[in-house]
Each structure stands twice: as structure tokens, then as C-alpha cells.
Amino acid sequence: MSKPFDMELFLTGILTGSQATRKRHLRQATIMQAGIAKRWQRETPWAWQRKHVAWFLEHRLDQHSEATRYYFLLSARLLARRLKKTWEFNL
């Protein structure tokens, strides 16, 4: 049995800003992780490709407000920076 992936530990070194901002990024990254894991069985961000995150932003958030999609986009950019990827996303 393996331990569940700890998103907080994964993002700890890169999270900056106020406590509320850090919590929001962590919560949104965890939601993204759950959505991608359910759809593609990719449990950790290390296994993700750009298409997985783009799918989440485009299809899972299509019924949400512009503000919500923007904040998820910021979290996605943070994840990409942590993974040292040059992913760009269009909303």
C-alpha cells in the first residue's frame, strides 16, 4: 500500500503570499489532482502532461465563473513552475 500524494509538501517550497492565498492554491491544486486522477488515473503532478491540466481548465471548469477559472489558472501556473515546465494555458 502506498501513501497518498501530499500536495502540500509538493508545493511548500514555491508557495508565497498570504496564508489565505497559500490555502487557496493548495485547495485548488488538490481539486485539480482529484479531477485528473479520476479521468486519467494520473495520481501525481509528476505524471501529468500539459493536456491533462488544459483539460481540467477547459472542461471541468466550463460551468464556473471567469474569476474561478482565473484563480485555477494561477494555481496551474504555479504547478507548472514547480514542475519546471513551460506550459502555457489559454482561457
Rank of each mutant, 00 (worst) to 15 (best):
residue 1 M to L: 03
residue 1 M to T: 12
residue 2 S to L: 12
residue 3 K to T: 14
residue 3 K to R: 11
residue 3 K to H: 13
residue 4 P to G: 12
residue 5 F to S: 08
residue 6 D to I: 10
residue 7 M to K: 00
residue 7 M to N: 01
residue 7 M to S: 00
residue 8 E to L: 04
residue 9 L to I: 05
residue 10 F to R: 06
residue 10 F to V: 02
residue 10 F to L: 00
residue 10 F to I: 09
residue 10 F to W: 12
residue 11 L to D: 06
residue 12 T to D: 15
residue 13 G to I: 09
residue 13 G to P: 01
residue 15 L to M: 10
residue 15 L to P: 07
residue 16 T to R: 15
residue 18 S to T: 08
residue 18 S to H: 04
residue 23 K to Y: 13
residue 23 K to W: 13
residue 27 R to F: 14
residue 28 Q to K: 04
residue 29 A to K: 03
residue 30 T to W: 14
residue 30 T to I: 14
residue 31 I to R: 14
residue 31 I to N: 09
residue 31 I to T: 12
residue 32 M to I: 06
residue 32 M to H: 04
residue 33 Q to T: 04
residue 33 Q to G: 00
residue 34 A to E: 14
residue 34 A to V: 10
residue 36 I to T: 02
residue 36 I to H: 00
residue 40 W to Y: 14
residue 40 W to Q: 04
residue 41 Q to K: 13
residue 44 T to E: 05
residue 44 T to R: 01
residue 45 P to F: 13
residue 45 P to S: 15
residue 45 P to W: 15
residue 46 W to G: 10
residue 49 Q to S: 05
residue 49 Q to W: 05
residue 51 K to Y: 11
residue 51 K to H: 13
residue 52 H to P: 09
residue 53 V to R: 01
residue 54 A to F: 01
residue 55 W to E: 04
residue 56 F to I: 03
residue 56 F to D: 05
residue 57 L to T: 07
residue 59 H to E: 10
residue 59 H to Q: 12
residue 60 R to H: 11
residue 61 L to D: 03
residue 62 D to S: 14
residue 62 D to L: 10
residue 62 D to G: 11
residue 64 H to T: 11
residue 65 S to M: 07
residue 65 S to P: 04
residue 65 S to V: 01
residue 65 S to H: 11
residue 67 A to V: 03
residue 68 T to C: 02
residue 68 T to G: 08
residue 68 T to V: 08
residue 69 R to S: 04
residue 70 Y to L: 09
residue 70 Y to I: 07
residue 70 Y to V: 13
residue 72 F to G: 03
residue 73 L to V: 03
residue 74 L to K: 15
residue 76 A to W: 06
residue 76 A to P: 01
residue 80 A to F: 00
residue 81 R to H: 15
residue 82 R to S: 00
residue 82 R to H: 01
residue 83 L to K: 02
residue 84 K to C: 10
residue 84 K to R: 15
residue 86 T to W: 01
residue 86 T to C: 05
residue 88 E to F: 02
residue 88 E to A: 09
residue 89 F to V: 01
residue 90 N to A: 09
residue 90 N to F: 03
residue 90 N to I: 01
residue 91 L to Y: 09
